[in-house]
């Protein structure tokens, strides 16, 4: 175990990179989720179709393949990102594609009475979405979002395969340097576990904070059997 203490500063730096990528990834996931999720519900074919293709392509291929593609193949098409930017982009687009389905699902499952009432009140479709449907749907999105965020955190370990010095990469270096395989892998497994638990507790707290009816939780916020692509395809 002494090896872990000796290399603690190094692990700390790797951890920071992992946290940075996770946070940026979550931010991008949210943007992508709402953009693509709402586009999927648009009345306009020109918005709906690209959103559908985007979601299917990013959900249909492996994240690790996407990562290598963005990292090693895309530059040949003249588009180049820094390693961290490429990583965040892949994580955000991939998990965003899953989360877009969460957004869409949460909105389409609003009772039709809500839409009818809006129409009766003369609200425009945009007002209907912004003032009525979204505020109701967001609490329902939180539990599956929590699963998506944990998936994203775990997926950040893949960036170690494209030369980014995150927690997993650091562990491999220390192992290569010292040969202390068991200690180092055990420690980072536990670290990831703690991070994942913290992330779920955070979303759990948000759920409680934003539940539509805080006494009796309506069925719509019941946790989805989730993880790894919160709402399965």
């Amino acid at each position: 175990m002494s090896v872990v203490i000796e290399y603690a500063p190094l692990l700390g730096r790797g951890l920071l990179t992992t946290l940075l990528i996770t946070m940026l990834g979550i931010a991008l996931t949210l943007v992508v989720a709402f953009a693509a999720g709402l586009a999927r519900l648009s009345r306009f074919w020109l918005l709906r179709a690209p959103a559908y293709v985007f979601i299917e392509v990013f959900r249909g291929t492996s994240m690790i393949v996407q990562l290598f593609w963005f990292f090693y193949a895309l530059p040949f098409l003249g588009i180049e990102f820094t390693p961290i930017a490429a990583a965040v982009l892949v994580l955000g687009l991939n998990e965003g594609a899953y989360a877009a389905e969460v957004v869409r699902g949460a909105i389409v499952t609003r009772p039709t009475g809500q839409t009818e009432a809006c129409i009766a009140l003369g609200l425009s479709p945009a007002q209907r979405m912004r003032r009525v449907l979204l505020p109701q749907a967001i609490p329902a999105m939180l539990p599956p979002f929590g699963n998506v965020f944990v998936d994203l955190l775990k997926a950040t370990s893949l960036v170690s395969l494209v030369t980014i010095v995150d927690l997993t990469f650091t562990a491999q270096s220390i192992r290569n340097e010292t040969g202390e395989t068991t200690a180092i892998f055990t420690v980072i497994l536990v670290m990831y576990f703690i991070l994942a638990m913290a992330l779920s507790l955070l979303t759990r707290w948000l759920e409680g904070r934003f539940a539509i009816d805080r006494s009796g939780r309506p069925a719509l916020t019941k946790p989805v059997i989730g993880g790894q692509g919160a709402i399965p395809a």
Partner: peptide
């Protein structure tokens, strides 16, 4: 199992 990355689990099983 759900809180740790598949990649690190695989490393663990393979190397440890």
């Amino acid at each position: 199992m759900r809180g740790t990355p598949l990649l690190v689990q695989a490393y663990f099983a393979f190397y440890v």
